[in-house]
Write a protein that binds this DNA or RNA. Structure first.
Lengths: 193, 193
DNA sequence: ATGTGCATGTAACTGGTTACATGATTCG
DNA sequence: CGAATCATGTAACCAGTTACATGCACAT
């Protein structure tokens, strides 16, 4: 039950810290990452919004439109911000899947600098361990093994390498300028390839 | 409803095509990829095994041990192999999350060469599109944006780049030697970094 | 002594998906 | 003229998690 159950609720809540938006807007935003972590369906999105409203973590502004369902713009409340803070500061299990990691990453803005660094470092050591494990199995099986096995292994290594590179780079940038906002934290990747 | 619902069942079934194993063994194997796609809990693993057994897709060999719960070694049946084939050949939605992609990758051994290539190419075009989208938002927001947003974006780009590189490399290797097993499909990644 | 790995399982819960309902507008 | 996008929602269903129960062996 837990501390790290990212039910859609907190995810939405985080989006709303940026700016007020409708359920549909939330969906649109999350679509950008659907290939990575998938995006929740309306069937879970709208009920989640209801729940947040009911708990007083968000407010709505209903904008009626003739003959169409009214747009509903949700804004986060002060209580909502507090709830989000409280949730994000919960410690995470040491070994979380990529999806969870990314999700927490998005909420990282509401996290104190030090906690963020710790989170990233935890992930780095985790990935390093898995990387070693993958490499061993990769070399130990050479030839004769199942195609699917090989593919998945190769893919896993590729992603692990990329993630480690990113973590190192980000960690460096984060320590060198732990104050001034987020100045080009992705310059390399944008131009790469 | 879902052609591509990867309930644990087929995942297990695939593992069993490699060699007979127990529920615990399955868990151990999947742990290797937990950081990527997560691994199912025993609470879903054991019931899944039951179901497979009930449907005649697997058989058990019970190995009693004194004072301990007996080990149960499951083997896939011919019916099981057929069911797996039937399942994997179902077309996938064009835009699946990384988790789904990896899962299907593992089962790719049971897929005809051409279908595999098509699957990879579909993914490639998908990622390319998302990559472009991410880059645009990345450049369009420079400075002033939320830290979490930046981090997630940078991370996404890093993974997207890695995935594309891997896809291209794999696709080439796959076409050059579409016959002889899987000769070092991951030589680069193993030594990288 | 305490915890981790081995090894199996069950029951309650819950978070989410799928499918449905409604309806205008714009694009190809 | 059909498909996709905009825009909201509900209800049935189900796949999975969490927490529990049991118990030995080995390491710290």
């Amino acid at each position: 039950m837990g501390a790290s159950t990212i039910s859609v609720r907190y995810f939405i809540l985080n989006l709303l810290t940026q700016q007020p938006m409708s359920g549909y807007d939330v969906k649109r935003f999350l679509k950008r990452f659907s290939w990575l972590i998938g995006s929740p369906s309306f069937g879970s999105l709208y009920p989640a919004l209801r729940a947040l409203l009911h708990d007083g973590l968000v407010t709505v502004e209903v904008i009626p439109r003739e003959d169409k369902p009214p747009r509903k713009i949700y804004s986060i409340t002060e209580t909502g911000r507090e709830a989000l803070q409280e949730w994000i500061r919960q410690p995470v299990a040491p070994d979380v899947p990529l999806k969870t990691f990314v999700m927490r990453l998005m909420v990282a803005g509401n996290l104190p600098h030090a906690a963020l660094v710790e989170h990233l470092e935890q992930r780095r050591s985790q990935i390093t361990a898995h990387q070693i494990d993958l490499r061993q199995t990769a070399t130990a099986m050479d030839d004769g093994a199942d195609l699917g096995q090989c593919l998945a292994l190769g893919y896993g290594l590729a992603v692990a390498n990329a993630e480690l590179t990113w973590l190192d780079r980000t960690l460096v940038q984060l320590s060198s300028q732990q104050n001034g906002a987020a100045s080009h934290l992705n310059s390399e990747s944008v131009s790469a390839r």
